[in-house]
Simulated scan of single mutants.
Amino acid sequence: MSLVDLDLRHTRLGRRNPVAKLAAAGILSVTLLLSIDPVSAGVTLGLTLLLLPFAEIPARALWLRVWPIAVGALIAAGATVLYGRSAGEVYVEWGLLRISEGSIDLALAIFLRVLAIALPSIILFVTTDPTDLADGLAQIVRLPARFVVGALAGLRLVGLLIDDWRELSLARRARGVADAGRLRRFAGQAFALFVLAIRRGTKLATAMEARGFDAPVVRTWARRSVLRWPDAGLVALAAAIAAASVLAAVLAGTWRFILGL
Rank of each mutant, 00 (worst) to 15 (best):
D7L: 04
G46Q: 02
L161I: 11
G42V: 07
T11W: 09
G159S: 08
P230V: 06
L106R: 12
A138K: 10
A178P: 06
A24E: 06
R16Q: 12
L133G: 06
A248V: 01
S40F: 02
W221N: 03
E89P: 01
R199E: 15
L50G: 09
G260D: 11
A190V: 11
A76W: 07
V4N: 14
G26A: 14
Y83M: 05
L112W: 04
L3H: 13
L259F: 15
A25T: 03
N17W: 03
D231P: 13
E89D: 12
A79R: 06
L62V: 03
F54K: 09
L45M: 05
L234Q: 10
A41S: 15
F147N: 00
G78S: 09
I57N: 04
I162C: 03
G176S: 10
I27E: 02
V30M: 11
S121H: 00
G176W: 09
R175Y: 02
G84V: 07
V126E: 09
I117M: 14
L155A: 13
R15M: 08
L32G: 07
A215Y: 01
F194P: 02
T80N: 13
R142K: 15
V66R: 00
T220D: 12
A171D: 05
V148R: 09
L28M: 13
R12E: 06
L8I: 01
L155G: 07
I140C: 04
R256I: 01
A41C: 02
A59N: 04
A59L: 12
I110P: 04
R113Q: 13
A73S: 12
I99F: 03
M208G: 07
G233I: 01
D5M: 12
L49F: 12
T254W: 01
R256F: 00
P18N: 09
D7V: 01
F257L: 13
L234N: 12
F191S: 14
R156C: 02
G176F: 08
L204Q: 13
S225D: 09
A178F: 11
T80A: 01
G14K: 10
W165H: 08
R113T: 01
L161C: 05
A174Y: 00
S245V: 04
T131H: 11
F186L: 15
R256Q: 13
D129E: 15
L22K: 02
L193V: 10
R199L: 14
A23Q: 01
V66D: 01
G253W: 05
A180C: 08
W63N: 08
A248K: 03
S100P: 09
L196T: 14
L170K: 04
Y91N: 02
D129W: 07
E89N: 12
S40I: 01
R182M: 12
T127K: 00
R172Q: 15
W255Q: 00
V218Y: 00
F111C: 12
L112Q: 08
W63I: 08
V90H: 04
W165N: 05
G181Q: 11
A151Y: 08
T44R: 01
E167L: 11
